[in-house]
Design a protein around this nucleic acid. Structure first.
Length: 203
DNA sequence: ATCAAGATTACCT
DNA sequence: GGTAATCTTGATA
């Protein structure tokens, strides 16, 4: 079982430099334990957001009711609702009050694929195309994993949602680009992904 | 109280 | 490549 092979990332992992944590999270295994079933997948794409000098960050204008989890100590989930339809999940990074986060944008499904299929399409049996589309985007990942507003603030050192350690990738395996879907601070090259992985949201 | 924008996705031509 | 769907938040009055 994938979930038992390696160790859960601890608090110290998350309380580090934003871009270092972002790159190190690539290739790690994110797990959701519903209490009945386990869903897991490899993180293959993400983006970093910095509350102090990144105008695209939800934390840029300071703490509000919506983004308050971003100002907690690293190692929690910040989940927000957008476009009236989708949830997006972030890993909060760094010390308290910093406002740093990493948006999870792409995951390669490992365990619980039947449940993911039901969450996304309402049925277990899905086409090859639907399989490749299960969790290849921030909203799709949340839908597949059943993550919604009730998971905002979830402690990733707990037992419901957590991330398992894996060896860091070599920098050669990591692609870097501008972030997607934003209108401010557009030139920061803060999107990271595993090159050639089919579950990244865009080529 | 009102309103525009939004860290997206699915479906259309 | 274009755009409707759908609703919460934060800004402004």
């Amino acid at each position: 079982m994938t979930s038992n092979k390696s160790k859960k990332l601890n608090r110290e992992f998350y309380i580090r430099n934003l871009l270092a944590v972002a790159k190190d999270l690539l290739g790690k295994i994110i797990v959701r334990n519903t209490g009945h079933e386990v869903i897991s997948g490899k993180i293959v794409e993400l983006e970093a957001y910095h509350g102090e000098y990144d105008q695209a960050s939800h934390a840029f204008k300071g703490k509000t009711k919506r983004n308050e989890v971003m100002f907690e100590e690293g190692g929690r989930m910040y989940v927000y609702f957008t476009y009236g339809t989708h949830f997006c999940a972030n890993v909060v990074v760094g010390k308290k009050e910093k406002g740093l986060a990493v948006l999870i944008r792409g995951v390669e499904p490992l365990e619980g694929i039947d449940l993911m299929s039901i969450n996304r399409y309402g049925r277990k049996s899905i086409s090859e195309k639907e399989k490749s589309n299960l969790t290849s985007g921030p909203g799709k990942f949340c839908k597949g994993f059943g993550i919604s507003r009730i998971h905002n603030g979830t402690d990733l050192t707990g037992n419901e949602i957590f991330i398992l350690d894996r060896p860091n990738l070599r920098s050669k395996e990591i692609g870097v680009s501008k972030r997607i879907g934003i209108t401010r601070s557009v030139d920061l090259q803060w999107r990271f992904f595993i090159k050639d992985n089919p579950f990244i949201s865009r080529k």
